[in-house]
Design a protein around this nucleic acid. Structure first.
Length: 263
DNA sequence: ATGGTCGGGGTCCGA
């Protein structure tokens, strides 16, 4: 089973590239982030036309997450538990079932958190605590779980081309990185690091100052696997070519292949 | 030394 995560930075601006990527790569599941549109404005027919079922949790102008699946989407859960007052659309969870097995998958758009001396950073940390609580619950299911998305976390210095540039950024604070590490300590595996020897591998390059041309990138899009998913991990990669296109997203797809046969 | 780019929705905010 092939599972991808991609922050598309507006699904309406990136619809052609998204459909083209689905056709070329034939993933079983894709988690999308930063849709920047409401459920009603999501281009559902075009995605369905490419052969995918759709679960959407949209929001006008900002945020918004979706799960696309070639297989039925079951038990869809919208929003991250733990704060009924949180109105930002950043979390969506569903079960993908095939005859070869089922996977619980979350599409995550973790808050950016900048600037660090602001309520936005507090919101980020509180959101991460809620995510950790949810991740702990999911482990109790003892099934393959994939928590995929834009975590807005640079886990380690090797995950940035120029780590010194990020010292004052919410993406690289000890509090943010510590919470990501806590997720790993629960028993979740960072799929890309578990299955790639390439240290200089990034998933985001800023639009400004020719960051992509200089390979001034960071790795902030992650697929975290429960033990039952990690046991089935076959391969991971990042589709860097998507960033070289005209008018691209600033993020590229990150992909995992799990040994869950599709029958 | 400065500012550099996108997207959405409206002439600024979020990233």
């Amino acid at each position: 089973m092939r599972i991808a995560t991609w922050n598309v930075n507006s699904i309406r601006q990136r619809l052609d590239y998204t459909v083209g990527w689905l056709r070329a790569n034939q993933p079983d599941v894709v988690c999308l982030q930063e849709l920047k549109c409401t459920d009603d404005a999501f281009p559902r027919l075009e995605i369905e036309g490419a052969g995918y079922n759709v679960a959407v949790h949209g929001q006008k102008g900002f945020n918004g997450v979706a799960i696309l699946s070639r297989h039925p989407l079951e038990d869809v859960m919208t929003g991250l538990p733990g704060d009924d007052a949180d109105e930002q659309s950043r979390y969506l969870e569903a079960t993908i079932s095939t005859d070869g097995g089922s996977v619980r998958i979350a599409s995550i758009y973790l808050p950016n958190g900048n600037p660090i001396a602001s309520p936005k950073f507090d919101y980020k940390l509180a959101w991460m605590d809620r995510l950790t609580a949810r991740a702990r619950m999911l482990l109790e299911l003892e099934v393959p779980v994939v928590l995929a998305g834009d975590y807005n976390i640079i886990p380690m210095p090797i995950d940035a081309r120029f780590p010194e540039n990020w010292l004052a950024d919410a993406l690289f604070q000890p509090e943010s990185r510590g919470r990501f590490r806590a997720l790993a300590a629960l028993g979740y595996t960072d799929a890309l690091r578990a299955c790639s020897d390439d240290e200089k591998i990034y998933s985001f390059w800023d639009y400004q100052a020719g960051a992509f041309q200089k390979n001034n990138g960071i790795r902030i899009d992650h697929l975290m696997l429960s033990p039952q998913a990690a046991d089935r991990l076959k391969a991971t990669w990042i589709d860097r070519d998507e960033r070289a296109r005209d008018k691209p997203s600033d993020h590229v797809p990150v992909v995992v292949e799990l040994e869950i046969p599709i029958r």
